[in-house]
Write a protein that binds this DNA or RNA. Structure first.
Lengths: 168, 168
DNA sequence: AGGGATGCCATGGGATTTCATGGGAAGCAA
DNA sequence: TTGCTTCCCATGAAATCCCATGGCATCCCT
């Protein structure tokens, strides 16, 4: 089964804050949860990040384990490690996908990103980002404005291998 | 059940100094108390640390046992061991979670961190930190400001692996 | 290839349980 | 007594469980 997310999807949010996880994404959560087996509920981690985040980020168990390990490998007490722990341990929640294939987003998190009627999922490698359809539209504009001076017809793959530490 | 804390939560502090331990955290205290069984009260240790601490730190019994062992393995009489004993033995208290899932914080401790109406819990690996909502907000800003080139909107994971000086 | 059956999937709703929180009354110390 | 604790109960709100339905895609049989 697939081990990475690909694609995007828009779903409804009901009055109880329930959000149906599109089946293709559910499969990824299942196969990346080491304790999962048919009939069980796939576990996952919701990272909601600091105050300014307008989205949630859903991680498979395996992806989160990798992150936990990387953080644990950083020097104790370093500012970077403290900040990462604050975000990925402090500003995160463990949950599971319910028997009907839905995720229940606690009221607090819904309010944080202004989630009401609809939720927009978009793949990001080994995690899935959740936006309101409106704020995702803004985000997309922001992203496009960041695209460097790509010559018309340039191949994005030319970026592979180049790495700068932060984005702008 | 989960053996590590994840997430954060804000709760009320009532006139009697009672603080409800959010259920997800209570489960961790239960499963990390070797003597606990259904119906019993989970034990824990409150570390309030030195004068400058603006938070309390709540440890499960198992986590505290580990710390005790590590301290016991240090050379007797060393300055480091004395300091650690002073904090984790001298400036700490054993308590339990009451039948309603609440922790009663002695007045002395509430005064120490200025706890009045609300308490903010945040996970820190195998312990839980307690702040006033106000001082936590400051702490969070401090954490962010310590990481030099962390720009708003950047992906925090870009920090993975980068490790600089320790904080003060 | 057509058409029906089957199964999966997104969505909805009612009933039940858990949870955070508030308050009264009984114990205990100063 | 007066002021803290400790125990027990009450309550509204939120979360969870369980079942229902209609649409869509897939499979299978003819």
């Amino acid at each position: 089964m697939a081990r990475r997310f690909r694609g995007s999807e828009e779903v409804k949010v009901d009055a109880k804050g329930r959000v149906s996880i599109p089946a293709k994404f559910r499969r990824v959560f299942e196969s990346c949860d080491p304790d999962w087996s048919t009939g069980k509920r796939p576990q996952m981690v919701i990272v909601f990040g600091t105050r300014d985040w307008k989205h949630l980020q859903l991680f498979t168990i395996e992806a989160m384990n990798e992150i936990d390990d990387s953080i644990a490998a950083m020097p104790r007490g370093s500012a970077e490690r403290n900040l990462l722990e604050n975000i990925y341990h402090g500003h995160a929640e463990e949950t599971e996908i319910d028997g009907d294939g839905r995720l229940v987003l606690p009221q607090k998190l819904r309010e944080k990103i202004g989630l009401a009627d609809g939720a927009f999922f978009i793949s990001a490698g080994d995690s899935l980002k959740v936006w309101t359809p409106e704020s995702y539209a803004e985000e997309e504009q922001r992203l496009e404005s960041l695209v460097p001076d790509f010559e018309p017809g340039a191949d994005p793959l030319s970026l592979l291998g180049s790495a700068s530490k932060t984005e702008g």
